[in-house]
């Protein structure tokens, strides 16, 4: 019994030869439950997004078997749902990473200007003649990185203070939104209208052309996310203690933040700034797993569930009017943000 005392409580040891892994039991259970919930949400989405399709037919389409509902489910709903799911997961992980690095639950990419930077550059390009959608993902990643770099430079005063970082980020977010608006008023009316819908965060008309590149981008980033899940543990320590343990905290932080910014930007490029998902998902996930760190897998799953369910509700609630998914997530996220600010723990740890 004395031996097992040493192992951190709540973890199960899994061994294979010389390899050994500590698995957090509650986090695993939560991730499993979230996976089931996500599967249920996806199936509901495929069956009920507009006209009703029987679950058996929907499943047939997913499995690639012939079905009369091939067009409805396979061509329209499935790619849109896939984009929603991936965007939600990417925002969830991005939020978790940036909140972890800044040790602040407020510091998510949609609050501190990252998604606004991605939007500004994308909308700018759209309204000023870039017609090929193929460039948009790159533009939004560039915009997100640029905005993050600007916030970083302005917030740096011989050190990075969490509250100052968040406040400057919020300032940049507002400024970049104005820039985006400026682009829209200057640009062609029709394109501006299109950009406006994109700006609220929308999954409307997303097909396989959008779904495939997002899938690839996120698949490529998966190994980095796996690294992040382990590296994240060390960021919650203070600099001196981490250095004493042989961790290069500066590099780890930079790596985690970069990954978060890139993920948020890719997601923004695919669906526009779906507000508050990156803010909300990690904190919800952490409350469920009760882990010391924000759990990445559960954040991804929570983000995915939020976006898929929000898009479904947006399509169903006020039929035939369809609300963009960003309106729904904002309706839930904004009160949470206000609550966070009222609680006044902006300088606290994530």
């Amino acid at each position: 019994m004395t031996l097992s005392l040493a192992r951190p409580a709540g973890y199960t040891l899994v061994r294979a030869g010389r390899a050994s892994f500590l698995v957090h039991r509650r986090a695993t259970a939560v991730a499993l439950a979230l996976t089931l919930l996500l599967a249920a949400a996806c199936l509901t989405y495929l069956c009920a997004a507009q006209s009703y399709v029987a679950p058996s037919e929907a499943l047939k389409v997913v499995l690639g078997q012939p079905s009369p509902d091939e067009l409805t489910v396979g061509t329209f709903r499935l790619p849109r749902m896939t984009v929603g799911l991936l965007v939600g997961a990417a925002f969830g992980v991005a939020g978790a990473l940036i909140q972890t690095v800044s040790r602040n639950p407020l510091a998510s990419p949609d609050i501190i200007g990252v998604t606004q930077g991605a939007s500004a550059l994308t909308v700018g390009a759209l309204t000023f003649g870039v017609t090929s959608y193929a460039y948009l993902p790159y533009l939004s990643v560039a915009g997100g990185l640029l905005a993050a770099a600007l916030v970083y430079v302005f917030a740096w005063r011989g050190g990075l203070h969490a509250t100052r970082f968040v406040l400057i980020g919020i300032g940049f977010a507002v400024a970049l939104r104005s820039v985006t608006n400026l682009f829209m008023t200057k640009g062609d009316y029709l394109v501006a209208q299109q950009a406006k819908v994109w700006m609220t965060g929308s999954l409307a008309d997303r097909g396989w052309d959008e779904a495939v590149p997002v899938t690839w981008a996120l698949l490529l980033l998966t190994p980095f996310v796996c690294w992040a899940a382990r590296a994240q543990r060390t960021v919650s320590m203070d600099d001196d203690t981490a250095t004493a343990l042989g961790i290069r905290l500066g590099r780890v932080r930079l790596g985690l933040a970069l990954l978060g910014v890139v993920l948020a930007s890719i997601a923004t490029g695919a669906a526009g700034p779906v507000d508050f998902v990156a803010l909300l998902a990690p904190q919800l996930a952490r409350r469920m797993t009760r882990t010391a760190q924000i759990p990445l897998l559960s954040s991804a799953l929570t983000g995915a569930v939020i976006v898929v369910v929000a898009d479904l509700l947006g399509r169903k609630l006020f039929e035939p009017t369809q609300l963009p998914v960003g309106v729904l997530t904002a309706a839930v996220g904004a009160p949470y943000l206000i609550w966070l600010i009222i609680r006044g723990r902006t300088g606290g740890k994530a």
Partner: peptide
């Protein structure tokens, strides 16, 4: 004045001392 991660347990914090001996695939020897 070291700062402990929020809500970390004693065993968890002490086991962080093993960090330099661990790898991602050797989390608990």
């Amino acid at each position: 004045s070291p700062v402990a991660p929020e809500a970390i347990t004693v065993a968890d914090l002490v086991s962080r001392g093993r960090q330099p001996h661990q790898r991602w695939w050797q989390q608990w020897s």
